[in-house]
Every structure is written in C-alpha cells, then in structure tokens.
Nucleic acid binder design. Structure first.
Length: 217
DNA sequence: GTCTCCCAATTCAA
DNA sequence: CTTGAATTGGGAGA
C-alpha cells in the first residue's frame, strides 16, 4: 500500500512574511460591524471582524501554534492512506491543563455572547493545502439553542457556507485574524461550512471553535 | 451485529 | 478558469 507521509509538511517557527505585515483591514479603517450572512430563529450566522484586538489575536496564535500538542490524523482513501489535511486539538474548558490562551478566549466569549461554552476544538491549517470539506457540526455533540463561536487567528482563509438542498445558496467569507463567526445551532440543520484548499500563498491559520456540548461526565 | 452517514484525493464534466 | 459530482473504505454513531 502506498502511504504518503506527513513528513514533508514543514512546521517551522512562524515567519512574519508579507501577508502578516498586512495593510489595515477595512474593518479597522471603517469600523465595519457584524455582518449577518443568514437569519433564523436563533443567531443565524454572523461574521464580526475585529472582535479580538490584533495584538491579542497575534499573541494567542503564537502561544497555541507552538505551545500545544497538535494531533495529526490519517485515513484511508481508496488504495492508500492520506493525512487529514489539518492538525487538530480539543479541550473541555474546565480542564485544569487548559492552555492560558484558550482560557482567556473563553473568559471573553462566554459573557460577550451569553452562552455557557464548555468545550473548544482547534484546527490548524498549515498552508493552502490544508482544508476541511463542507460539513455541518454533529448535532448530537451540541446542546440545542447554543451556537458555535469560531474565532480565527493567524492568516486569513476563505470559508464557504452553503445552504443545504434544495437551495444550495453559496456564500464565501474571508475569516480575518481576530474575527468571530457565530453559527446558530439551528443553522447546523440548514447550512454546511468548510474551508477549501487554495493555490494562493496563504500562511498558517488556527481556528478556535467554542461549543456547548452535552457533558459526558 | 447491522445499518447509515461521513470524508479523505483525484478525476471528469459542465 | 471554477465548481460540483462521483468514486472506496474505515470509523463512528444510532
């Protein structure tokens, strides 16, 4: 069996390149507020750039990219085994070993959104080859009525949001560092979301997905 | 145990 | 050029 290894994917100390040295964001220059992408009986789907100050977002990004144990998964694909195209990690928020950056983010998000987030899942997109297919969050792993809060750190990546059939209306939204995307629990019934691969030169991105999960303990 | 659904990369068609 | 469908197989959950 032909097995492609992950070894050729570099994971070097973060180099501040042209993308990181970025021009001011439109949100910063013009005070763009929350952008509603979809409405439902709950929060719908709302994108809010500049939710976290840039310096704090940068600090969290660096602390997480180097400070936690990222997991690499593999799965069969036809006659070979391939890497899941991203790195992952997750915590219950009451874990004594919760990284400080995640504790800070949770402490900020819980009162700001008014939802009792108790878990966080992280995805590390190393470059444009990393991705996640269109999907919706597993409803059995969420408590109804509470949204998913997706905090973006590092490089900007483009998210695709697609309504489920028959509408299949597609929206694309660039998730800037420090931005927050809130997706209602209800929207997981009606929409899929994903991050497509891109041939554009993009740097590393980390997403933090805060959820209210049914406690298994 | 059995069934259904998901999702990984590539190829092909529109 | 972009987008979506189809494809196999192992794992997870009901």
């Amino acid at each position: 069996m032909n097995v492609r290894r992950a070894g050729n994917r570099s994971f070097e100390p973060y180099a501040v390149g042209p993308a990181a040295a970025s021009a001011p964001r439109v949100a910063d220059m013009f005070g763009v507020g929350p952008q509603r992408l979809f409405s439902d009986a709950e929060e719908g789907i709302v994108y809010q750039p500049g939710f976290i100050p840039a310096d704090i977002a940068a600090r969290w990004f660096e602390a997480l990219r180097t400070g936690i144990r990222w997991e690499s998964q593999r799965r069969p694909m036809y006659d070979r085994v391939v890497d899941v195209p991203r790195l992952t990690a997750s915590w219950w928020l009451d874990d004594p070993a919760l990284p400080e950056a995640l504790a800070e983010a949770a402490a900020l998000l819980r009162p700001a959104l008014g939802h009792p987030f108790n878990a966080v899942g992280l995805n590390f997109y190393r470059d444009g080859r990393d991705s996640v297919a269109l999907h919706n969050d597993k409803l059995h792993s969420l408590v109804p009525g509470h949204p998913i809060a997706l905090l973006s750190l590092g490089s900007q990546r483009r998210m695709t949001i697609r309504a489920k059939p028959p509408a299949r209306h597609v929206q694309r939204i660039d998730l800037a560092p420090g931005s927050l995307l809130v997706m209602s629990h209800a929207s997981q019934h009606t929409h899929e979301h994903g991050v497509a691969k891109t041939t554009e030169a993009v740097g590393e991105r980390i997403s933090l997905a805060f959820r209210v999960r049914p406690s298994t303990r």
